[in-house]
Design a protein around this nucleic acid. Sequence first.
DNA 1: CTAGGTGCAAATAATTTGCAGAGGC
DNA 2: GCCTCTGCAAATTATTTGCACCTAG
Lengths: 329, 329
Amino acid sequence: MSTLPDVRDLKPAGGKRSSKREQILNVFLNEEGHLTAEELVSRVQRDDRRVSRATVYRTIQWMVDAGIASRVDFGDGLARYERSYHHPRHNHLICNKCHRSFEFMSSDIEQLVDEVAASRGFSASQTVVQIHGVCEDCQHGRPAGSDHGLTDLLFARDALRMAIATERSGLEFYTRAARLTKDARGRSIFQKLAEEERHHLGTLEGRYAELLKRDPELETRPTFLFFKGAAHGLFAEGADRLLQGVDDQQALLVGIRCERGSHQFFKKYGERFEDSEGKQIFLEFASEEREHLDLLMREYRALVKRQGRRPRKGAGVPAARGTRQGRRA
Amino acid sequence: MSTLPDVRDLKPAGGKRSSKREQILNVFLNEEGHLTAEELVSRVQRDDRRVSRATVYRTIQWMVDAGIASRVDFGDGLARYERSYHHPRHNHLICNKCHRSFEFMSSDIEQLVDEVAASRGFSASQTVVQIHGVCEDCQHGRPAGSDHGLTDLLFARDALRMAIATERSGLEFYTRAARLTKDARGRSIFQKLAEEERHHLGTLEGRYAELLKRDPELETRPTFLFFKGAAHGLFAEGADRLLQGVDDQQALLVGIRCERGSHQFFKKYGERFEDSEGKQIFLEFASEEREHLDLLMREYRALVKRQGRRPRKGAGVPAARGTRQGRRA
DNA sequence: CTAGGTGCAAATAATTTGCAGAGGC
DNA sequence: GCCTCTGCAAATTATTTGCACCTAG
């Protein structure tokens, strides 16, 4: 039961803050997973016997209205509530044996769900994805480890991992491009781009290291954010041949396309997520890519002004980063 | 309220068949969508006042145990039940305004869900996917059309559509191959393959036409089965060049790869579905492709025996049908 | 001072159960 | 005749409400 440092300070509210509400809220926010109403009642009454069942129920309703809690339903007729404040939207794996549940998020599933809704002209407000079954521990008769509910941290971790993977594949790509490009000016552009990727990568890795300090076991925890098509196949293979005859203008155009793709990709997905640190990372990364993109575009325009626009040979600029290709695991 | 012809005959059971049970079962099976327990009670009591609430509840439990009904939970604390006998597993779009619900199925979502479960070592027994929101009718202030619950028919329709699309793209492919192939024997193999596809396509289209007779509006009803990667991109583009130098042995190998891919694809997906007409179609189509495949393989072996194995030039046989490429809509 | 929060107990709502009698095999 | 099903009414469970009282703003 690790403490959740910053959460309690900012409590958004509405209505009065009474001592009872404060008490119930604190108990609720200190729980990791989700609780049924009755569970919350007994947790609260363990501290203070005088708090009545009705008040807890009413406070739950208030928390839901205020956006602090959200209701989840596992189909057993009990209403469960979980923190939604600073906690990304997610889905559940639900074990029928030990009755624990595990959180995950999959942008690919969300994407498909959106497409289904769109095709029916349905305006979706919330989607529920639940996997009911038997968890790994129960299958192996293991004692059921603790269910660490560090979802926000896991989300941040996975978002950073994705940004890092993207940056890395960008670095690789530009490095290879620099190696292959014959034109000296083109080559130097790619070298510069590679250098920038390296630098940015360093920043991201620093941030990742900092995240690890918050929880030493963070790296070994299971994947929270499932996301294909992010770091895989973002840079087209086989562009090698085409790069050989690329000059500085064309090299900049290649860079622009890559950065634009990356920016759009992270922006698009960052926007789908609920408020949380992971969303922050997505959007920050998107805007960093945007800045980089703007820089490249200014540079490109300046170059054109100096040199005049040269005809582009070969349309073979690699597909934008963020494109879904190479979808296989 | 169309009648459901064959459903009532086969009722799987267990325990005694009393007149009350029979009554309740009939009422339940004649409903299209899902019912809450109370709704079923009042429907039943409309026919026969003497049936008690408790009996209905007990009979519901019996139906669930017998696999006739299954429970769905929309998160409002009411247990709902829907027919599961001869009704494919599916997911729901749930309208918050008119409280109707619409069914859909997406193999792509199921696929992703399976991958999430697998990555956590979770043995999934059931997955719930619900899209809550506002339906098209309610958004436009329209009067809320009837909710036709012909899911099984829709599934059959979509399964057939998919088989037809596959067959069609096979036909196109073999036709093009026959046009392009320079080697006379290779060409005649492709012509034969095209002819077979045409014939099979005819069969499928006949079956489709028969389906339409059961419900004249069937074609205009919304998509039930969402499925990318089925008919799209099954045959690789750009194989044209490679086909030119293909002889009869190689042409057969091309056909074998295509039919094998198609067989595996439909088998794999047919197996995921619950018992219903659509599943039938998937599995039938898979086994027809299998037969075709076996035929081609026998033919290939005979050819090799007659002619001896010739070296294959160019590995450029198109990717197997059923491969996921060209995933874009 | 007063709107809103709180406790208690009673009300509701969905579903289950105990028990005596009825009905299928 | 036995075992299961059925009806009725009472019990249980989860949640909400009425009402008198209390407290923060």
